[in-house]
Design a protein around this nucleic acid. Sequence first.
DNA 1: TACGCGACCTGATTG
DNA 2: ACAATCAGGTCGCGT
Lengths: 235, 235
Amino acid sequence: MDAYHLQETCNAVREPMFEKPLTPSDVGKLNRLVIPKQYAEKYFPLASESGEKGLLLCFEDEGGKPWRFRYSYWTSSQSYVLTKGWSRYVKEKRLDAGDLVIFERTLAGDRFFIACRRRGSPEEPSSSSSTHNAWNQQSFYNSYNASSSMPSSYLYMSSMQQDCFVQRGGEQRSRGNNSTVGVPKTLRLFGVNLECIPDEPEDKEQVVHSGLCFMDQNSVHRGRFMPGNASTSQL
Amino acid sequence: MDAYHLQETCNAVREPMFEKPLTPSDVGKLNRLVIPKQYAEKYFPLASESGEKGLLLCFEDEGGKPWRFRYSYWTSSQSYVLTKGWSRYVKEKRLDAGDLVIFERTLAGDRFFIACRRRGSPEEPSSSSSTHNAWNQQSFYNSYNASSSMPSSYLYMSSMQQDCFVQRGGEQRSRGNNSTVGVPKTLRLFGVNLECIPDEPEDKEQVVHSGLCFMDQNSVHRGRFMPGNASTSQL
DNA sequence: TACGCGACCTGATTG
DNA sequence: ACAATCAGGTCGCGT
């Protein structure tokens, strides 16, 4: 396999990261999701303890809709959290305590995915009113099953085998942006810019907050966060 | 008196600051002690409103045990409070509403002391299980009587007797570092560093917090807080 | 002005 | 017993 195809493969191979049953606090007024430390440190490394204040992480949901969350570490409680943006997700997905959030990434680590499943619905990701399980509908991830014992070595193949995923019932929804999918060099996928280009106006507040370290658009996971980039020059 | 002896004297001359009968809130779940504004502004000046988030104050109790409290101003209630660390003190001393906390300092203002007395025990400071009224036992403050009308000019003389601090009966707690006691220039007394040297492992969480303005060890009341020193260079 | 959110804190729990 | 984790809190700033 040449470099191009390797790249393309990694862009599409999915790997589960972790899932978490939501606590009352996770869906309550605290507006934050605690990421279990083991997973946080494995998948969302912050630039060590060099005073980094937070990172903006982007995830695609089942409908391809991008979700941006501020990710940071609270030294006082020694815990990793998603803060800004999280409450909007909870609200739109109508999440409740006991529901499950599921995090995945591409093998290349350049894209993240978020899904949710209602408590007691062992297979069905929760569907929001507008987007309707596009992951499954698109059949990219037909075989997806975030079993509770999700081994981290378990991979979802969607590249080079996209066929497998493409079948799955004829619900094909219009997301509009699929045209760029599969053009690795641009790194604009599912409407999410993986390079420095500013993103949808939806969260213009991000711009307001851009004075914060690592909260401006430029730092949104290029490759794997580029932790060495954590300068505090803005302070 | 030369500078050396003046320094040594001021290190040991004690001056009462204030005392407060504890309210139910002071010993309850709010985990904070409200410092009467008049005393707070007199003895624990914060660096005005220049965005300062709080200060870490260290007090020695009757047994010489250091207690660190976060001290800050709550604009919402317009009150000065001790927060972090306070609940531990309440618990260890088994304080209840109506009990008295007593604050003192050296004349030089470089060391603080905290004591408590049970409600209705006019003379006896409350004793914790392990440390047993070392202030009185050592007879440093034999004449100590935190009467309710404590004139601020009332001084406790203990200077030129720093030896007393070194002896400390048989109950010498294994803090390991007393070797520097009695060397005034080091300003390590009772195991409390009054300069920049990091302190007991007991509160290593403080180290974790060292990135916070005014909460790191370096800013712990050198002289009188040195608020201008609150560099964020660790960020 | 109410509230989202950032920063801070603590107690319960668990290995 | 100790240490680590994290669920459930607080206050205050900014919008």
